[in-house]
């Protein structure tokens, strides 16, 4: 089997990136209910995104697929206004996830779950600007018309102290999402003969 990504694989990568972004966007819209939900992205997005990700893992199985996807996610995040500060983190998690999955030859269930856990860290990258520039960001938000209550809640949930918790939670729920996604993929797609 040829292990280089071909045009067909890039189309698959694009397709799943679009799906993942739709998941992210749909979950992101919930963020306006309460700032705590913004922090809970690390739980919601990896869990829901696990389903398309697992299908993606079983469909491509070539080195570079996750790296490409992370580059695309970084581009989309930038274009939709989340900034470029998180981009190196997104791409780094993509490369590491790719290497882990390659270690299991893209077949090993354990390595795939681990790999998705690492890949899920791209969600955390979106908090990066909030954490790095916390004080000036807060001032800007207040001047920009946010209420103090919202800011307090936002920064109580996301700051340099909770960052570690968020990252770990993200990783765990990424693994959990992968596990659930694997089950869902088996239940529906293996039966239908798609994977």
């Amino acid at each position: 089997m040829n292990n280089k990504l071909k045009a067909k694989d890039f189309i698959t990568v694009g397709l799943f990136t679009a799906l993942l972004f739709v998941v992210e966007f749909a979950c992101g819209m919930l963020g306006f209910i309460h700032p705590y939900i913004v922090a809970a992205y690390v739980i919601i997005i990896p869990l829901v995104g696990g389903i398309p990700m697992m299908l993606f893992y079983s469909k491509t199985e070539k080195f570079g697929m996750l790296t490409t996807m992370s580059i695309l996610l970084a581009i989309i995040m930038f274009v939709t206004g989340m900034g470029w500060l998180g981009a190196p983190l997104i791409i780094a998690s993509g490369i590491v996830a790719d290497l882990i999955a390659k270690g299991g030859n893209y077949k090993s269930a354990k390595k795939t779950i681990l790999s998705n856990g690492v890949f899920s860290l791209w969600v955390c990258a979106n908090y990066f600007p909030v954490i790095v520039s916390a004080s000036s960001y807060r001032k800007d938000l207040l001047k920009g018309g946010y209420s103090a209550e919202y800011c307090d809640n936002l920064f109580r949930a996301i700051n340099s102290k909770t960052a570690i918790v968020l990252i770990i939670a993200c990783f765990i729920f990424g693994c959990l999402g992968a596990y659930l996604g694997e089950a869902v993929v088996k239940k529906h797609f293996a039966k239908a003969g798609i994977v």
């Binding site: 990504l5 045009a7 890039f10 189309i11 990568v13 694009g14 397709l15 990136t17 679009a18 972004f21 570079g64 490409t68 580059i71 695309l72 581009i75 989309i76």
Partner: peptide, 10 residues
């Protein structure tokens, strides 16, 4: 090319 194709698909 890979990035272009993927972006176009997205």
């Amino acid at each position: 090319d890979g990035i272009t194709i993927s972006l176009a698909v997205i």
